[in-house]
Amino acid sequence: MVVALVLFCWIGPLVYRTNQVATALQLANRPPSVRFPLGTDNVGYSILGRLMAGGQTSLEVGLGAAAFALMLGVLWGSVSGYVGGLVDSVMMRIVDATLAIPIIFLLLFIASMVTPSVPLLIFIIGLVSWPTPARLIRAETLSLRHREYVDAARTAGGGHIRVIFRHILPNALGTIIVNGTFQVSDAIIALASLSFLGLGIPPPATNWGEMLSNGVNYVFEGYWWQVLPAGLAIVVIVVAFNLVGDGLRDVFEVRLRRR
C-alpha cells in the first residue's frame, strides 16, 4: 500500500499532468467528470492532481520528521540509558517535561512563530516527536548495556561511543525501525493537523491536511469530492504505515525468538 501511494504521488504526475501552480478560479468547485476525475477544489485545481502534489509534501514531511525525531530520540535515549545515574535522571526528566506539554500546543506555538516550509515543518514536527523514541531506546539500552558482549567490548578497550554505536544500537534496531514507522504516520497526522488549523505550507504548495481543511469549508455546499479523497488518503497512508510497523515488529520478534 505504501509503495502504491509513493508511486501515485511521484509517478502519477508524470501520467496525469495538471497545473498545480496557477489557479483557475473559473473552474472552481467542479464535480467529478471525465476531465477532472475527482473534481476541482475551491480555486480550480484538479483534486486528483492536488492529491498527488499534496501526497508528496505529506510523505516528505512524514518521512523527514520521523527520521529527525528518531535521530534525536535514539541519541538522547541511548546516551541516557548507557551513562545512567544522575545524567540519566536529568535527561529523562527533560523527556518527561517535554511529554507533559500537549503536542498540538507545542506545534501551534512554534508554527505560528515562523512561515512554514517543508524543511521547517520537518524540523518542527521532529522537534516535538523525539521524546517517545528516546524513552524506548533508553529502555532498550538499559537492558542491553549489561549484556556479555557489551561488557566484552568495554573490556577490550572499546570507547563509549564505539560501544553505543557498534554494539548497543544495532541490537536495538528492531525497536528503532518499528517505532520509525509509527513516527511517520504520527508526523503525517501532525502535518495534517497543523494544516487543518491553517498553519500549513503557503499556497500553491499543499498537503492532504490542507486539502481536508479547504474541503470542510464547503461541506454544506455538498462538495463531497473536496473532502473524501484527502480524508481517505490520510486514513490509508496512516493505516499502511501502521501495518508496516506491526509487520516489522512481528518479524523482529520472530527473529529474536529463533535466537
Binding site: 504520527d186 501532525a190 487543518f196 481536508l212 461541506v219 463531497w224 473532502v227 481517505l232 501502521n242
Partner: peptide, 26 residues
Amino acid sequence: ARAFRVGRGVAAAVGMVLLLASCTQS
C-alpha cells in the same frame, strides 16, 4: 474554531467523521 487532536487513531476518526459529514449534509 476547530479542535483536532494529534494521535494515531485520530486519523481514522477524522476521516470517518468527515466522510459521514460530507455524506449526510443533505
